[in-house]
Amino acid sequence: MATERETQADRRVCGLVKDLASQIEAHLRARAATLGLTATQATALRELTHPMTLRELAERMSCEPSNITFVADRLEGQGYLERHPHPDDRRAKQLILTPKGAELRDRLVELLSEDSPLAPLAPEEQDVLQHLLTRALIR
């Protein structure tokens, strides 16, 4: 059974993680707005590091593929991505950034690095934080 001290420590850590996630989300929203994007569109662009299916993108964004369809439609309509036949699965389509989309993604990544909520941490500290969060998530 957890002691009172362990329970308080757990609550403090959970609160800090929640606060950091909120700051990161607000930062993403603000930077996305400067580019005329929603936070979800910005997240999709950030995650499109290579051609991937809607299902793969949905997994990276932790949501259902049906939710990503609307986002992909909007980004495609704006000329930021295209759907191409998947080379190994004729039932699937791959999402591929257009040159305009790749340029926007680069700008977004640059903006997200400016005044990031994680900026106060040295790169080594960010590595430690990533390691600790990864350990906490693996069960």
Rank of each mutant, 00 (worst) to 15 (best):
H27A: 00
L48R: 09
L57F: 04
Q94R: 15
A72W: 02
G79V: 03
L129A: 05
L112H: 06
A58L: 00
A136D: 09
A119R: 10
Q23W: 03
T69P: 01
Q130V: 07
I138N: 12
Q94A: 13
L104G: 03
A39L: 11
R29G: 09
R139W: 15
N67S: 08
V71D: 02
M1P: 11
R60P: 07
A39N: 12
E25P: 04
A122D: 06
E103W: 01
R105E: 07
S116V: 09
A72C: 05
H84A: 13
L54I: 11
A44Q: 02
E59V: 08
R31Y: 01
P117I: 15
A122G: 03
A58R: 00
V128L: 13
R105N: 05
L45I: 05
L133M: 08
R31C: 10
G77Y: 03
Q41V: 03
P85T: 04
T69S: 12
Q126C: 13
K100V: 08
L48G: 09
E110H: 12
L97M: 01
E82H: 07
P65Q: 01
P65F: 00
R90M: 15
E64K: 11
R107Y: 06
L132C: 10
R55P: 06
P87T: 07
A102K: 09
R31V: 06
P117V: 15
H50P: 02
V109R: 08
Q130A: 13
L28S: 05
L108H: 01
T3F: 03
G79D: 00
A92F: 00
T98P: 03
S62D: 15
D115Y: 05
T34H: 14
V109A: 12
T98D: 02
M1A: 14
L112K: 08
S62P: 04
A44Y: 03
T134M: 09
A2F: 01
R83Y: 01
S116E: 08
C14Y: 14
E4G: 13
R91W: 04
